[in-house]
Design a protein around this nucleic acid. Structure first.
Length: 280
DNA sequence: CCTATAGCCTGACGGC
DNA sequence: TGCCGTCAGGCTATAG
């Protein structure tokens, strides 16, 4: 499995930085392709600080002897169902990755939790900066409510009307509004910049003053960007050349007009945009 | 009610 | 060479 999974999940094996909705969707597929329906023989927790609301002991007792049955995603959260016991809830923070492997020598450096299966393989939750979280959930809806998470950005039920409702009342910059997981779940710093670039809207513009036409463009770009990123398996090297996502960094130039991209801070986060093509 | 910000956490990088 | 400050941005808690 790892060799076959390796080609499809090359980006996962390299490890995502800054996992947002598309990255977590690929993690979901990765778990579905590798880790379901096998008996969990052992759970090893190497860093208790990643646990959220549960003890080490409870995690072990809940998982050992059971099987993972399915993998679902909401926003940036992954939910892996445990036979008869709800879900393992995974959040990846900024540096969380997954790795499925057999040879323990290949164990990753910042492996915070390791789940071992009866076939001799292991699934590692690797999180260098320990900003990710591992917990248990009885059901996904409950978890969503407890965490105040908004609708998933790619949920088919999130039409333009529902999108407007989710943004309603925000007085913040549109970039912050899009990244607010309580309004819409799944968008982070990198993809919010891409969405706004493709909408021709400045990240620092107030959501309130945008008007329906611009918001319509933001909505369409949101779906387009996220769907395309999932299609391209969230691999940074595979994103279209017309996007600004691959150009974050020094001396960044606009793929559209060739002008210099500007870097500003919006609510404490770095935002890249093209001052010429984004006038909104 | 709302938004902005500090702090958690680690490693890469640039300046001296 | 090596030390140190800064930055990266996921989240939460708290300040405004």
């Amino acid at each position: 499995m790892p060799s076959r999974a390796g080609a499809r999940f090359a980006a996962v094996e390299r490890g995502f930085e800054l996992p947002e909705l598309p990255d977590v969707e690929i993690y979901r597929e990765y778990i579905a392709a590798t880790s379901l329906h096998r008996k969990i023989t052992r759970v090893e927790l190497r860093s208790a600080s990643i646990l959220e609301g549960i003890s080490r002991r409870r995690l072990k007792e809940t998982l050992e002897g059971r099987r993972f049955e399915s993998a679902k995603r909401h926003g940036k959260h992954l939910f892996v169902s445990i036979s008869g016991r709800g879900f393992l809830a995974l959040h990846f923070g900024m540096t969380g990755t997954l790795k499925y492997f057999k040879d323990l020598e290949k164990d990753t450096e910042h492996d915070r939790m390791r789940v071992s299966f009866s076939n001799g393989y292991h699934l590692a939750y690797d999180c260098r900066r320990k900003l990710g979280r591992v917990g248990l959930a009885e059901d996904i809806e409950r978890f969503r409510e407890a965490h105040g998470l908004g609708p998933d950005a790619l949920d088919d039920r999130l039409g333009f009307e529902e999108f407007l409702r989710a943004l309603e009342g925000s007085r913040a910059a549109v970039k912050s509004t899009l990244m607010d997981q309580k309004r819409i779940a799944g968008i982070g710093n990198v993809y919010s910049d891409e969405i706004l670039f493709q909408s021709g809207v400045r990240p620092g513009a107030k959501t309130r003053g945008l008007g329906e036409e611009r918001l319509q463009r933001v909505y369409r770009s949101m779906r387009h960007v996220l769907l395309t990123a999932v299609e391209r398996r969230a691999d940074p090297g595979s994103m279209p050349a017309s996007w600004i996502t691959p150009r974050r960094g020094k001396d960044a130039r606009c793929p559209n007009c060739g002008g210099e991209l500007e870097k500003i801070r919006v609510s404490g986060r770095s935002a890249y945009f093209c001052p010429k093509d984004q006038q909104g």
